[in-house]
């Protein structure tokens, strides 16, 4: 039994926790809704998995260097609005606006490193700014997704549903870049022991800017993919994504400090969240309790992790 060997090995237990949570939710769905176990059913259940996974990965980059981005939701919303207006009506201008967003993320990283600003407050302030621009672009829901984006998100993939393929691709790309590449090591090292990394002659500023910019890139992809799914933009379309992204990282086994994260885990965490959301909808659980259920899941996972941590400390 996997379970038995895992219980005796806390480290292994911790690493399979994300997959275990996903399996649990999947199992629950298939028992309640056997019809969901199909190409079509999974496609529907996992509809929003791609943007959530991308936002989670974006948040993970920031968490790797011991910061937190509380503006992720507002930013994803702004990108969706830019996509539905500027990018649709005047592509060059749209691209320019998106590039400006990335530059803003780079500056945020530099400000956190150079001025020692708490990222929580800085990104909180930025969330106002992103929402402000989004409201300026689209004061009411509307606009149109560019056709190519819409088509991309509706890409028919044989046998395996598109969201699963996309999630696997995202996980592989980030796993290669952050966990396997030689520069990913430096970026993770900056989160683990910044002093040691600086002593070895690396620039912490460059590391911070790189991580925030990567967060900007993946947040942008999240916004665009979300727009591709919905077809129209709205300034508040992604307000919940701040919470989703943080919760996804945690469900995926990431830690808030110390540069210990797992891209594959984060994507699994995002899939779990997306599934749990759809599942709660299918079950006709009153939407009132949906956020509460997410909070409870979060606490449950953290409690499990604390338990495993206590097991590890015991000699």
């Amino acid at each position: 039994m996997i379970g038995l060997t895992a219980v005796s090995n806390p480290k292994l237990l911790r690493s399979i926790l994300p997959a275990l949570s996903l399996a649990l939710v999947l199992g629950a769905i298939f028992i309640k809704l056997p019809t969901a176990m199909s190409y079509f059913g999974l496609n529907l259940l996992l509809q929003y998995a791609v943007p959530i996974a991308l936002a989670t990965v974006a948040q993970m980059f920031v968490i790797t260097v011991n910061d937190l981005d509380l503006s992720m939701g507002a930013y994803v919303g702004l990108v969706a609005c830019i996509g539905a207006t500027l990018l649709h009506d005047n592509p060059p201008l749209g691209v320019l606006a998106l590039a400006a967003c990335l530059a803003a993320y780079a500056v945020m990283g530099a400000a956190v490193q150079l001025r020692g600003l708490p990222s929580i407050v800085l990104t909180l302030g930025m969330s106002f700014v992103w929402s402000g621009f989004a409201v300026l672009l689209l004061s009411t829901p509307g606009g149109h997704a560019p056709d190519w984006l819409h088509n991309l998100m509706a890409l028919p993939v044989p046998v395996v549903p598109f969201p699963i393929v996309a999630a696997a691709v995202i996980a592989c790309v980030v796993e290669l870049g952050l966990m396997r590449s030689s520069f990913g090591v430096i970026l993770r090292g900056a989160g683990g022991n910044s002093k040691a990394v600086a002593r070895a002659g690396w620039s912490l500023l460059a590391a911070k800017v790189a991580m925030f910019t990567l967060a900007g890139v993946f947040g942008m992809l999240a916004g665009l993919s979300l727009l591709g799914l919905t077809g129209a933009g709205d300034a508040h379309i992604a307000d919940r994504y701040t919470l989703y992204s943080i919760a996804g990282v945690i469900l995926g086994g990431g830690e808030f400090v110390g540069g210990r994260v797992s891209p594959a885990g984060a994507v699994l965490g995002a899939l779990t969240l997306a599934l749990a959301n759809s599942f709660l909808n299918f079950l006709h659980i009153s939407p009132d309790w949906q956020i509460g259920a997410q909070g409870a899941i979060l606490i449950l996972v953290l409690a499990l992790r604390a338990l495993i941590g206590a097991m590890e400390r015991r000699p």
Binding site: A111, L117, V121, L122, M126
Partner: peptide
């Protein structure tokens, strides 16, 4: 000022103060 400008100004001022 439109709601958008109001939001942007609020954010800019918070960031300005902590800077």
């Amino acid at each position: 000022a439109s709601p958008g400008i109001r939001l942007i100004m609020t954010g800019v001022i918070i960031i300005g103060v902590i800077l």
